[in-house]
């Protein structure tokens, strides 16, 4: 990746992080930790040109699809979609408010660019499997991306979907696992150990690529490699820092689902910009 592209993506990730903090501060509730951990990957997906999408035509038939299976992290999706022009940025401050298109968890009927309604963990990967099957039946080239949480992988349905995706050889399905090591009650290793994660996906018949979720070169190479795999689903295991970019939120399960106060938001934003 050239320096100019990297700089642009870093800038977008920064904007997304600032929007996440602003919208959560304004709403007074929501999920910062798992939103911040995905900001770099969302910046790459939506601004590097890697997704075939059109904000002017959000239902374009051939489009690539992104399913946020870990729906609670919707601030990162909303901030990204607004930045990309799917809807007016002014909506961001209506997050979680009555009458808003930006529900506490994503509603595909309300928000252009949201491909699946999620929030009940464990279901988005299955929906992505269905999309990949449907697109393949129609002989479309499009890819389906599913963003999972590592805590979410406690759900049995994730592994049902994992089996089905491999069984049907869904080469057009790419999972991205936000392996931030935290869920609500604490570290995943203490709450419910899902390790060895890589071995699990491999043994379920997936192609696995492990990356640093905050390194654009690694993100880029993983996604281009993943697109080359034609006969199996790919899981990009993205080692991330929950709360990335805000020192007092990083690796703190207390910041999973708590909004920052005004002062905390100011501090957070100065760190992100710094």
């Amino acid at each position: 990746m050239d320096a100019e592209m990297k700089k642009m993506l870093e800038g977008k990730a920064e904007d997304i992080r600032v929007d996440i903090i602003d919208m959560l501060c304004e709403s007074g509730s929501g999920h910062p930790g798992g939103s911040l951990s995905m900001a770099d990957i969302f910046s790459y997906l939506y601004f590097s040109g890697s997704l075939n999408i059109d904000p002017e035509n959000p239902r374009m038939e051939d489009r690539d699809r992104v399913v946020l299976s870990k729906g609670h992290a919707c601030p990162v999706l909303y901030a990204t979609l607004a930045e990309k022009g799917f809807f007016e940025k002014s909506h961001l401050k209506t997050l979680r408010k009555f009458g808003s298109i930006l529900q506490g968890h994503p509603d595909m009927k309300k928000v252009p660019g949201v491909e699946m309604s999620t929030g009940s963990l464990g279901q988005g990967l299955s929906a992505a499997v269905g999309m990949a099957m449907g697109l393949r039946l129609d002989k479309k080239d499009a890819h389906v991306f599913a963003i999972l949480g590592d805590g979410e992988c406690d759900e049995g349905q994730i592994w049902e979907a994992a089996m089905a995706a491999a069984h049907y050889e869904l080469g057009n399905l790419i999972g991205i696992l936000d392996r931030n090591g935290l869920q609500i009650d604490g570290f995943t290793k203490d709450v419910m150990n899902t390790e060895p994660m890589i071995d699990k996906w491999l043994s379920f018949g997936w192609h696995v690529i492990e990356i640093d979720a905050h390194n654009f070169d690694e993100i880029e190479s993983a996604i281009s490699q993943a697109k080359e795999v034609k006969n199996a689903p790919v899981m990009i295991v993205a080692n991330s820092v929950k709360g990335k970019g805000v020192s007092f939120m990083e690796n703190e399960c207390g910041w999973h689902g708590k909004a920052p106060s005004l002062e905390e938001a100011e501090k957070a934003k100065s760190e992100i910009a710094g």
Binding site: Q123, S126, A127, V129, M133, G134, Q157, E160, A161
Partner: peptide
């Protein structure tokens, strides 16, 4: 056979997969 999907004994997955198929214009 191409439009029939046996999902195995995994009903939760089947329902959400059906939802995903429906988003692509299929009638599951």
């Amino acid at each position: 056979p191409d439009r029939f999907f046996d999902m195995g004994i995994a009903e939760a997955n089947m329902m959400s997969v059906a939802a995903g198929l429906a988003t692509t214009g299929k009638i599951p």
